[in-house]
């Protein structure tokens, strides 16, 4: 299953909010775990989302060392990221409710 366009940002932000600073590999692994492997994220597609979010100022990245002493860029959510997440979540809830209703009506 692919990711619905526009929702990946939401997912990433939420993950960073709950888990704290993470590097891309850890984010990808986490997403796979949480979706019971339903969401098979091609890991390369995660980067554009990270770059986009970083450019929007919603997350910020810093180079650091992993516990295995490998070099990796750790991303963490920013204040504006928190706000955006809140907004997007509300929007998503409204939207999914609508779509749900629409589908339920069988129109």
């Amino acid at each position: 299953m692919g990711v619905l366009q526009g929702t990946l940002d939401l997912i990433v932000l939420r993950t960073l909010q709950t888990m704290g600073a993470m590097h891309a590999y850890a984010i990808a692994t986490r997403l796979e775990q949480i979706s019971d492997d339903l969401l098979h994220l091609n890991q390369g597609t995660l980067y554009p989302a990270l770059v986009r979010l970083e450019q929007q100022g919603r997350i910020k990245g810093a180079w650091g060392k992993t516990e295995t002493n490998r070099e990796a860029k750790f991303y963490s959510i920013t204040k504006s990221g928190e706000k955006a997440l809140e907004e997007e979540t509300r929007r998503w809830r409204l939207m999914s409710g609508l779509v749900e209703k629409l589908l339920g009506e069988g129109a």
Binding site: Y47, E71, K73
Partner: peptide
Amino acid sequence: ELEREIEAHLRLLQD
């Protein structure tokens, strides 16, 4: 930067 990040990612995967 991109090169570096992909490299790091691959390393972690390989590990």
